[in-house]
Design a protein around this nucleic acid. Structure first.
Lengths: 194, 194
DNA sequence: ATAATATCCGACCGCACGGTATGTTGCAAG
DNA sequence: CTTGCAACATACCGTGCGGTCGGATATTAT
């Protein structure tokens, strides 16, 4: 990897971290520059403006990260159990101070979806992609599931509840509430089986 | 109501609307002043700073609004059905352009809970209050419910899913996804009964 | 070796923001 | 009538922001 490309990747990673912690609008370019040890000229050589940097972070950092997290859980022989174990593992791996940051995708959705169309469409595509993953997984084992289930609707329901759990976790500042909601969600998911 | 008190209420209402539409940080005092037709001196006569204005909006506008919305649904003879009807009525009353604004409480939670302790504690208290309402309602009809239900956990689960539904609604910009999630949530709620 | 281009630097700009300080008006008590 | 304070108005300030631009340096092509 060329040194220029390293600079670019460094900017993307630092920006991703800053956006995750402070949101897009509250993220300061100056902070990114300081953390990267580069100048403003360097940043504006690689990205035309802050918005394009945000888009690049979404596409090149958040999106792959997101898919890599969900994909394995849904690709197992038993996606129902895979999903439950994945959700439970989130609560276990989540440190207390991390719980307040929430999911990058959901954060951006809350902050930017109704402000910037570029973000909105990217987020929407990502959510539909996730929903498709869930639907595909359910289709694969549909014989094991109750036959009155609307797969897509259930998929969105799961995603929504996870987002909401993150939200409630932010205000309570401990993961007990979060864990409870995930527990309840796993009950719901397992109840999809016959 | 004195003219001064009218001014104060006007500021609160306009500020509540602005915060609902643009979030707290992105809400500009200048815009509030213009919409109210008052000067900056007037605003700073009634509120010490922007943060205190935000707290006042939360306590005097959002909080009463929130309780007035939930209370009736949970006070009926059949809170399970009351809850479902209430949730469904949200989707019906919600215009398409309103769907992108989301719930003021959830918005503030996402934006401010991990930034400002004053907001966080107020939001937390509000959420616990809502949860208590749900728990109380469930306790009242506990004989009609399955006997392995953790009331508090179910309450948080319901609140979380509603928040998440709002979030997903923001990016899709139509209420179909929102409605689906609420439908699924109502199924879950009705399944709490024996 | 030299020209050309990519990469990066850092001073600067305009702007909108929250907040302050001082001035003005009007009502109400004495 | 006047004194005083609540209720505003207005001009101004410092700050941090995203973004621009001319120049310096490194890398590559010829």
């Amino acid at each position: 990897m060329s040194v220029a490309e390293q600079t670019r990747q460094n900017i993307l990673n630092v920006a991703a971290d800053e956006i995750h912690h402070h949101g897009f609008k509250a993220t300061s370019l100056s902070v990114i520059l300081n953390r990267c040890g580069i100048s403003k000229g360097a940043l504006y050589h690689h990205f035309t403006n802050k918005l394009e940097l945000g888009y690049a972070v979404f596409e090149e950092v958040y999106q792959p990260m997101f898919l890599q997290a969900w994909q394995p859980a849904l690709s197992t022989d038993d996606p129902i159990e895979g999903l439950c174990e994945f959700l439970t593992s989130i609560t276990e791996k989540m440190a207390c101070n991390e719980s307040v940051c929430g999911c990058p995708l959901n954060n951006l959705c809350e902050e930017m979806a109704n402000v910037d169309e570029g973000f909105r469409l990217r987020i929407l595509a990502m959510q539909e992609q996730l929903n498709q993953l869930i639907v595909d997984a359910f289709e694969r084992v549909r014989d094991d599931l109750r036959n009155n289930i609307k797969f897509s609707q259930a998929g969105y329901f799961i995603a929504a509840t996870l987002n909401g759990a993150n939200s409630l976790g932010k205000s309570s500042r401990n993961k007990v509430v979060f864990t409870q909601i995930i527990d309840e969600l796993c009950c719901y998911i397992r109840a999809l089986k016959k």
